[in-house]
Design a protein around this nucleic acid. Structure first.
Lengths: 225, 225
DNA sequence: ATTACTATTCTACGAGTAT
DNA sequence: TATACTCGTAGAATAGTAA
């Protein structure tokens, strides 16, 4: 039995809610989830069931998969190892240099569609303007951690005859100044991190173009970074 | 590249401290860590280095392996997935029925060698006597989670011409009653969980033989379960 | 539609061994 | 002692299909 591959499979099922309720899942979907063929995914499910890690209920259209207690403790053991590695790591720190953006931030932040969503998520009214931080390659790569684990997700909306895209948002702070980071869903790779705050950050931090700034980002909604 | 197997390899290196300092590691040791042959372990290290996940420094006796930033974010991404699964799961709950032990608990807890270690770890003086809970098979299996992740470890010691073995200990509570669980290192499989407290638990909970009791166990030292 | 069998390909493991 | 090469092979993954 290939342990790491099984754990990965169980983790994916758990992320789809397999602890609480049975997951409706065709073998083809499962295959895509794991980057495998339909045939292998099917076999993997059979093996997991044989090892008592999942319970299956076959429908004619899809199957319903639920994780067993054995799977839960297996995943929890895994979780504890990661907790030990990242003990007390509830936040990430990004370091970047201040740069002048295209002034788009000001425009977007004044759209009611975004503004009301920000207020609801963050509990404060963003100053109309973003602070743009240019990140080094290491930090830029770590942006995917934020992208894959949104604390808040702002929905896209239609206005003025065009579409405003969705945005991922995280609570953050620069020094003692409360702020938040935003990542447009659209841009798939970028080395720029946009920061908003209830006040003008260039005054509050304070900072100017070229200054190096550290922003501490909380990974979970409602948390203090 | 086999993703899950690589992640597992990196996790093992990280658990050995590969984030902070280079890990001194022969390919044979690495092989044992992963349950693979020396040849495969060696190849795995070469592959990880080629992917830029580790930096290697070859000695003639052993090699020194250090994780790169890329590896860190890979593992952190993994950690975030588990955090999402077990959000706010800083404690585990075990359910068991009260049973009468052999009265050994009273004897052991009155040995100064244990007593002083308990006081230092927990901050309170244990009542001389343990509450023994007989767990169901599922819960008994989950005891390994505690065994593999001790919050406190009490050292073994010599006294009265014999050896008193080491013990794993976790902060816990039953209802509102503060207590702690203890697991002797010696016993490798057991379905009994021993609970100690600053007071006599049979009075404080209260409970009697055959009663079903839930104990909530914190996974980290100093935490409230 | 699905799942999962059988046949086939091919990857990845480990034995043997050179360095 | 180490590491890591070649190479035969077991078993995993996929293709093709049946149910």
């Amino acid at each position: 039995v290939n342990r790491p591959a099984d754990v990965e499979a169980l983790k994916q099922l758990a992320l789809r809610g397999g602890f609480e309720a049975p997951v409706e899942l065709a073998s083809t979907e499962f295959a895509h989830l794991l980057g495998l063929s339909q045939q292998t995914a099917s076999r993997r499910l059979i093996e997991l069931a044989e090892e008592g890690l999942i319970q299956r209920e076959m429908g004619l259209r899809k199957q319903r998969v639920r994780l067993t207690e054995k799977a839960r403790s297996l995943l929890q053991a895994e979780h504890l190892q990661y907790q030990r590695l990242f003990a007390g790591a509830g936040s990430l720190t990004f370091k970047g240099t201040v740069k002048t953006g295209l002034g788009e931030g000001r425009y977007y932040l004044s759209r009611p569609g975004y503004k009301t969503q920000f207020v609801r998520a963050l509990g404060w009214d963003p100053y109309p303007g973003t602070l743009n931080l240019e990140l080094g390659p290491d930090d830029a790569q770590r942006l995917s951690l934020l992208r894959d684990h949104p604390a808040y997700t702002l929905q896209s909306f239609q206005a003025e005859g065009r579409t405003f895209g969705g945005v991922t948002c995280h609570p953050a702070r620069i020094g003692r100044q409360l702020c938040a980071t935003i990542l447009p869903h659209r841009t798939h790779y970028t080395s720029t991190l946009e920061v908003i705050a209830p006040v003008r950050l260039r005054d509050a931090v304070p900072c100017a173009d070229g200054d190096t700034v550290e922003v501490h980002v909380a990974l979970r909604p409602g948390e203090a970074p």
